[in-house]
């Protein structure tokens, strides 16, 4: 993947922020070590450090407030989605397979243990899809990967609960479902496929 396109992903944002943090920390360590032998004859070293703290505090607070506000724009939770879903998909995780089926009436089955679905499903591109995700036995995690191996969206699959994950595939192709919650020794083989047309 092109470096620039990585930076535009959420993962890229995480990388840039963390890298800046690590570089600042490394810079501070080098500064502290390299200045430690300079004399503090007038005993003002501590005061100088603490004088800078006010500016740091204001800067950090600003970063936190702005970061918090920006992050609220792309929450994954169903109550914060603007688009109404075009189609509903029911997903049930069971040790160690995914069962998926389109729900024509948008409802979820009353008994997940009896739910019939398949581990491969075909879904439309450029439609807002609502995945109702649950589990019949233990906790699983329904994670959608594209063909390049980038994690696009995920939610937990929990016994007794239905989590609603909304996602829109913009590109046709084959997508892979991995389980991202440890669910027993064969955990890694719990995969599924979505063919997007």
């Amino acid at each position: 993947m092109h470096l620039f396109s990585i930076l535009l992903t959420i993962q890229g944002t995480a990388a840039v922020i963390s890298l800046i943090g690590a570089v600042v920390v490394a810079g501070v360590v080098l500064f502290v070590v390299s200045t430690s032998h300079k004399p503090d004859t007038d005993h003002t070293a501590k005061t100088k450090v603490y004088k800078f703290r006010g500016k740091y505090f204001a800067g950090l607070l600003a970063v936190i407030v702005v970061g918090f506000a920006l992050s609220m724009a792309t929450l994954p939770y169903p109550q914060f989605q603007k688009d109404a879903p075009d189609q509903t998909v029911v997903v049930v995780g069971s040790q160690w397979m995914w069962k998926m089926a389109v729900s024509d009436d948008g409802t979820v089955p009353a008994d997940v243990a009896k739910f019939k679905g398949t581990s491969t499903i075909t879904l439309p591109a450029n439609k807002t899809l609502k995945f109702w995700v649950s589990a019949s036995d233990v906790n699983h995690n329904y994670a959608i990967y594209d063909a390049n191996g980038e994690l696009l969206a995920q939610t937990q699959a929990m016994p007794g609960y239905w989590n609603a994950l909304q996602y829109r595939f913009s590109t046709p192709g084959t997508y892979t479902i991995l389980c991202l919650e440890y669910c027993g020794a064969p955990h890694t083989v719990m995969t599924g496929k979505i063919n997007v047309q």
Partner: peptide, 26 residues
């Protein structure tokens, strides 16, 4: 202290819901 700060920064990044949705359990 430096390791705490570096790990802490990465932790704060991961504790952002909008970022955690693609970093959770990676």
């Amino acid at each position: 202290g430096a390791g705490w700060a570096v790990g802490g920064c990465a932790a704060v990044v991961d504790s952002t819901i909008a970022i955690n949705k693609v970093l959770h359990n990676t």
